[in-house]
Structures are given as structure tokens and as C-alpha cells.
Amino acid sequence: MVQYLVILLDDTSVSYCHCNNPYKEHRLISLDDLRNGILYAMKENLMIQFVYPDYDLPEEYKEKIESIDHHNIVSSLYFDKLMFEESDVVVFQDWSSVSNYDFEPGKAYVIKTTKTDLFDRYCSLKEILGKVDRLNVVITDVEKFTDGDFESYKKVLSELSAEIEKLYVAGKSPQLNLLTDRMMLSEMNNCGAGETNITLAPNGKFYVCPAFYYENEADSVGDLDKGLDIKNKQLYRLDHAPICRHCDAWQCKRCIWLNRKTTLEVNTPSHEQCVIAHLERNASRELLNSIRKHGTFLPEQDEIEKIDYLDPFDKRADWQ
């Protein structure tokens, strides 16, 4: 059931996920489409997430946005200070401005990174984790991971895990999506594109997620006039995902767009996405066990089971 409506306010709105936004030219959503998008969300009981471009929006847009409860997703380069203070999620497109940034609690931060940059610069995350409530690291070239990269990623997770353990013992409780999400979950909690959330693009049409808009504008799933029309919508649900429904890497993004890009099917993840998610899962398991050595921690959560695989696809014979 759809619960969230992501509204891209402009073609250059910040990309906060695995895909990159190819648009360079401004194209602001029309005021009518913005108004109708908000109306649609009200009628369908959807929570709105506005995604901002870098430039200052016209006053009438700001007024309209403020007329409804919402969340704001902005770029770290967004310069409107007033609006910036109102933001809920701040997105870094790369590491260039991370080191000098004045991180503060109360917001969620997203750092988008290539695998190479992550392996080179992950140490700087340790300091940031001491300052923020939540940090999401989003890898933008998941499909390029090699066996060697998996080993490097495992090492990165292990080091970050040790840092998080120290912070938790010291009484802080920052969240890092790669490590803390899994230990707090008791069921799948994925991106939900096409199932729990949909995207309204500046052209007034709906998309499964921003990436589908960025990749092919013709790939819409309805518009504000005719409403939502998601073909084969069951394929976005877990019960129609043949690998994922057997999986317990519950923190996995299960990125529908990456699925389609790598395997040609929205319900089937690539080997790389599965292994990355399982390295995170296993690191979360270690972290949970380590923190619990210091005292009671998340007592309502079961232990994360030890498993002997990194890609559930390899265990498919056991599903029959």
C-alpha cells in the first residue's frame, strides 16, 4: 500500500539514492502540478517528501509546500539558510564537502559514494558518527563490485563497527544504515519503491522512483489527471520476489531500479547487491553481539543467526 509521495521539485533536485541525476537544466514543477500533487497526497493519505534543487524556490512554491506536513530532502550545497534549517535529510553527492561540513544532530545525512572513494575515505565517517543521529552511506556503483571489493567492504564494515561499539558504550547511539539498521529490525524494511512509495516528477507524471524518471521519462506509471497505474504492481512486493522473500538481510535496500538494471527484472537482485547486503547483515550480527557484551541491549530483538552464505540465490535448492 502506498504511504509516501516523493515530489521532485525540479529536474535538478538532489539525487539521494543509488542512481545519479543526469539532468543539468532547471525545470521546476508547475505550480498547478505541485498543488495537485499535494491534493493527491491528501486524498490518498500519503506523507510527502519534497526533494529540492540547489537554487532558491519562488515564494509561492514555498507557501504551497508549507501548507502541508512533509519532509524536506536537500543537497548539502543548498544555500537557502532558512529552508536548510527546516530540512530533514541532507545529501552529499560525493566526499568533496564532507570534511569541512558542520554536522549537527536532529537531521539525517546521506553520503553518496563510489566504492573506491568509500574504501579510501571511510575513516572520516568515524568522526561524523560522533556528531550525528543518523548517517546513510549510499554506494553508487554496487554493480561494479568484484570479489576483491567484497573483502575490502568487509574490512570497512568491521572498522566502522568497532567505532560504533565504542560510541554505544559511551552512551551515544548514532545510526549508520550499513550496520545498525539490521540489528533493530524484525522484518524486511526495504526501499519500498512502487509499493510503499511513489514519485511525482516535475513533468506531472508518477514514477516508481526518481531513478526510473532519470533513466527514461517515458517510464511513467500514471499522472495527476488519470491517477496511478502501476502495471504488474505485485512484482514490487516481497511475496513476489523469489530470492528476497527467503532472505533475512532485512536492512537491504532491495533497490528495484538496480534490480532491473542488472537482472532485467524489478523483483530479482544482482549477486553484488545480495553479497553487499549480507556482508552488512553479518557485520551487524557481530556488532550486536559485541555491544551486548557490555550489558543489556535491544533485549526485544532476537539474535541474528549465523549463516554460511553471502548470496541467498546459492541456497535456492533449499527453498523447494
Binding site: 554493480e143 523483483n267 544482482s270 549477486h271 540465490f313
Partner: peptide
């Protein structure tokens, strides 16, 4: 490209 085999190998009737 083994990733492109995965949907066919994983395909089951429930899905």
C-alpha cells in the same frame, strides 16, 4: 552475464 540468469533460475510459481 550471470546476473541476467538469476530471474530465470529463481523463478517460481508463487512469484
Amino acid at each position: 552475464d550471470k546476473n541476467k540468469l538469476r530471474p530465470l533460475y529463481a523463478l517460481d510459481l508463487q512469484s
